[in-house]
Amino acid sequence: MKSIFLQTNTAIWALLALATTLSWYMGSDAALNIPAAMLLIAFFKTRLVIMHFMEVNHAPVGLRLICEAWGIVCCAALIVLYLPS
């Protein structure tokens, strides 16, 4: 039963929690509140969820491409719109 918990996805969960702590810290510190960096962290987290938790990394290439395109297009559009700040 232990082996169920000892899997890559547990490390992914720890990484997601760490990234959340980092972005939360950046959100509370004006000097570290860099929109582009925080957006990259957010979409890195969504990619981890999509590829590992949703198992898209084992899915056919079409689904994988759609998911990758979603993350890239959303992240790029937001970074551009957040540029003036």
Binding site: S23, M26, G27, M38, A42, T46, V49, F53, M54
Partner: peptide, 23 residues
């Protein structure tokens, strides 16, 4: 069902960042 639940999670990740964190 699992796929749907993960989607609820991933959408919140972005909402949290843009609504609460990025000033």
């Amino acid at each position: 069902g699992a796929t749907y639940w993960h989607m609820v999670d991933l959408l919140w990740i972005v909402l949290f960042s843009i609504l609460y964190l990025i000033k």
